[in-house]
Amino acid sequence: MSPSATSSGGVRDDAAADRLAAAPLPETEVSAVVSGIGPRLRSLRTRHGLSLQQLSDRSDVSPAAIHKVEQGTMVPTITTLLKLAATFQVPVAHFIGEVEAPDSPVVYTPAKQRRTRTEGDGDVVVGSISAESGPFDLAASVTEIGAGARSAEDNRHPAGESLVHVQSGTLELTVGRQVFRLTAGDSLHFRSEESHSWRNPSGRTAKVVWVSLPERRA
């Protein structure tokens, strides 16, 4: 179930609220649930190619708090979990172990079920085309970038790879000190941790496939 807005402008997850009102779990089960939150959060963040600061900017949760939750040194409040769930467009249950990886390493997502989100001033629409859960590391999206839209000047993501393929329109990508002007059919493959930025210099929307693959930790 997707989070829904409350009258105060926050985000509410009815299933999570019901669980909070239920009988308390045994201490061993509580420990198991809490210990699983950090790895699930880090997996979501890296699959979306976000740094701690970028996730903080989107969720209004401090980078230090996100880091502590991922490392298991801080138990997040329900408010923090709701903010993070809303940012990734997943139910709070995703963090507490009630969303299991599918038995089969195959996830089919019909077009009408694809999750989308807007960024910037609403001139960037990101539509996820990769699975939201399962035994996967790769994250991919079809992104529509409005005329004149641009990213921050210095984007840095966790170590890994990024692949950008322009389906239509024009996208200018700067990686390090190199500037690349991509048009329909062009692609660019680069290390995600390299400083990079992008902008749409044209007067029409650019449609781009963006793929991110974080490095696995040993």
Rank of each mutant, 00 (worst) to 15 (best):
V107I: 13
K68E: 13
E194H: 15
S128R: 13
I78D: 10
R19E: 09
L163C: 06
V99P: 03
R177G: 13
L171Q: 02
A16P: 01
E27W: 07
V75F: 06
D13Y: 06
A206I: 08
S128D: 11
Q167R: 08
V209D: 01
D186H: 12
S31A: 13
G72P: 11
K112A: 14
A147Q: 03
F88A: 01
T205L: 03
G122R: 08
G120Y: 10
V75K: 08
L138S: 03
S7D: 10
D18C: 12
R40W: 12
S35M: 09
I66Q: 01
D137A: 11
P105Y: 08
A159M: 00
D14N: 04
V33H: 05
A139M: 09
R58A: 15
T79S: 06
G49W: 11
T109R: 04
S212W: 05
D18R: 15
E161A: 02
N155A: 14
Q54R: 15
E98V: 14
A5D: 01
H94N: 03
T174A: 13
G185L: 14
E194D: 14
A85Q: 06
T109V: 15
L213F: 07
L25I: 05
S141T: 14
H189Q: 05
I145A: 04
A139H: 10
E70H: 14
V90L: 01
V11H: 07
V179Y: 05
S59P: 10
R45G: 09
L138K: 03
V33N: 11
L82I: 01
Y108L: 15
R47E: 12
Q53Y: 03
P201Q: 08
S56G: 05
S43H: 05
D60G: 07
S192I: 01
A5V: 11
R217C: 00
S187C: 11
Q89C: 04
H94W: 11
A149F: 13
A64F: 03
V106W: 12
P102E: 11
N200E: 09
P91A: 07
P110L: 15
R181G: 07
G127Y: 00
V126N: 02
D154W: 15
R42I: 01
V209L: 10
H48A: 13
Q53D: 14
P102F: 09
A111V: 13
R47M: 07
Q54W: 12
E172R: 15
L44D: 05
A5G: 01
A86E: 04
D186Q: 10
T109K: 11
L213N: 06
P102A: 12
V211H: 07
T143N: 04
T143W: 02
S133F: 12
L84F: 10
L213A: 07
D137P: 00
P102Q: 04
E70S: 03
L25R: 04
H94V: 05
L20C: 04
R177K: 11
L41E: 06
E144R: 04
V208H: 02
P102G: 15
W198R: 00
G122F: 13
V99H: 02
A206Y: 09
V126S: 11
I145Y: 04
E144T: 08
K207A: 03
E194G: 00
V126L: 13
V107L: 08
L171D: 07
R115A: 09
G9L: 08
T143A: 03
K112G: 02
